[in-house]
Amino acid sequence: MQIMDHHQQLTLSVAVRDDARFANYYAGPNEQIVQSLQQQWTVHGEPYLYLWGAPGVGCSHLLQASCHYAEGLGHQSVYLPLDELVEYSPAVLDAMEQLPLVALDNIQAVAGRPDWEEGLFHLFNRIRDRQGHLLIAASQAPGHIGVQLPDLSSRLSWGMVYQVEPLEDNDKVLALLLRAKRRGLNMSDEVARFILTRGPRDMQGLFDLLETLDQASLSAQRKLTIPFIKAEMGW
């Protein structure tokens, strides 16, 4: 989606990853969060949710998956990674309330910035007045991200607040197997455990490594085996 910052006359291109979908997400201990995100569009759904967790636990994936899910139901949405937009004017938030779903990622990136905090406060009110839906993700709980504007700080805790829990190792293996299956990659449980043992500990790092290995196996026309991975990665 393209967003025009009227103050700076710049067009910002904000993309949602095509593979960031609920079907491509292994929930593990976060199943309730996925259900709440999907239930946003039901009669008893919560229109505002705040997700927080350490880098790599999947907050960004869940926000983007929610956008895909909303679009699939016929609702327009916008995904705004605030860590990428912080150097622009908060005027990028103007009129966003006209969309049924607004997803604000990495809100901690603009905490302590008076212009952005005021812009978010007014956006929050406009979304509420239009009975829209709002998703927010951050690295920490609402009271710990450094927001200085009291009115905004209180609004961040209005809806449901969920901590996205990191996966245990067994769940990470299952998440890798699911992602491999979605990529059409035949990978054994043994190979997945080997990757987990030698690769990054965070899920995004593991998924990036899986993509690299998938491309390498395609180029070499080789199956993804432990000897192949050792040779490719120098392990």
Rank of each mutant, 00 (worst) to 15 (best):
H6K: 15
H6F: 15
A15C: 11
R21P: 10
A23S: 15
G28F: 07
P29G: 04
Q35T: 09
S36R: 08
W41D: 09
W41M: 10
H44G: 15
P47F: 07
L49I: 05
W52P: 02
W52E: 01
G56A: 03
S66Q: 02
H68I: 03
G74K: 09
Q76P: 12
S77V: 01
S89V: 13
S89G: 12
P90W: 12
V92F: 13
Q98A: 10
P100T: 01
L104I: 00
D105R: 00
V110A: 05
A111S: 12
W116Y: 06
W116E: 04
L120S: 07
H122Q: 10
F124T: 03
N125G: 01
R126T: 04
I127F: 00
P150F: 11
R155G: 07
L156Y: 10
G159Q: 13
V161G: 06
E165C: 05
P166V: 06
N170E: 14
K172T: 00
L176R: 03
L178M: 09
M187S: 03
D189G: 03
E190W: 04
E190P: 04
A192I: 01
F194Y: 15
L196T: 02
G199F: 02
R201T: 08
Q204K: 07
D208S: 12
D214I: 14
L218T: 05
S219H: 11
Q221I: 04
K223L: 11
F228V: 04
I229F: 09
M233P: 06
W235L: 12
